[in-house]
Design a protein around this nucleic acid. Structure first.
Lengths: 96, 96
DNA sequence: TGAATACTTGAGCAAGTATTCATATATCTA
DNA sequence: TAGATATATGAATACTTGCTCAAGTATTCA
């Protein structure tokens, strides 16, 4: 049945959150556990600013959660649907 | 483990295909079976041109398949991973 | 053959996005 | 308290995207 316009935009927002290589790479490292911004930036070989901007989007979409510890901020995945979508997409890409 | 850059872009492309309300609405009607461009456009209340442009993207991503019959072109879903991703995303949006 | 129908395509524009750079805020340490 | 560290944020820029409009191709039918 035709998806209602309002639901279609929410669903599009969810997939949009997963539609960028940088965000997917952030998710891939957070699958192993929480990590702070500097560590993520080091792993991805990107500036902390760029990573921070992307984390903001993921935070707003409630896909990651932030935990502040001193001056570090540790991020972790805040949604197991995301992990499922990520893994299912990856499966499709790797042997689809 | 950190997702390789090349795979991350492929995965992002897949999710990008699902990251637009119009494309999701097209997918939602094609879940019920094949449909031609004019019928899709009527259901979505959009121009055939706009729908055709989106179908092109979905075709290039191999998410839909086209069957020509006379001057009509019938589209159908070409990938059951897509249906799974769609349904899982929808579940998340509807009661997440 | 000529007109109508069904769809596709390219150009152009408005709106959105990801990154960089500079700056701001918060926290720790000497 | 001053300076260093960790992160966040705003503005600017380059790039991408979705639609419209006009024109093009293919097919049917009178």
């Amino acid at each position: 049945m035709l998806l209602k316009a309002s639901i279609s935009t929410h669903l599009a927002d969810l997939f949009s959150a997963l539609s960028d290589p940088t965000r997917l790479r952030i998710i891939s490292v957070l699958l192993e556990g929480e990590m702070n911004v500097g560590e993520i930036a080091t792993q991805l070989v990107m500036t902390e600013s760029a990573v921070s901007h992307q984390l903001r989007g993921l935070r707003q979409m409630k896909l990651v959660r932030a935990r502040k510890a001193g001056r570090q901020v540790y991020y972790s995945l805040d949604d197991d649907h995301v992990e499922k979508l990520y893994r299912m997409g990856l499966e499709h890409v790797e042997h689809g």
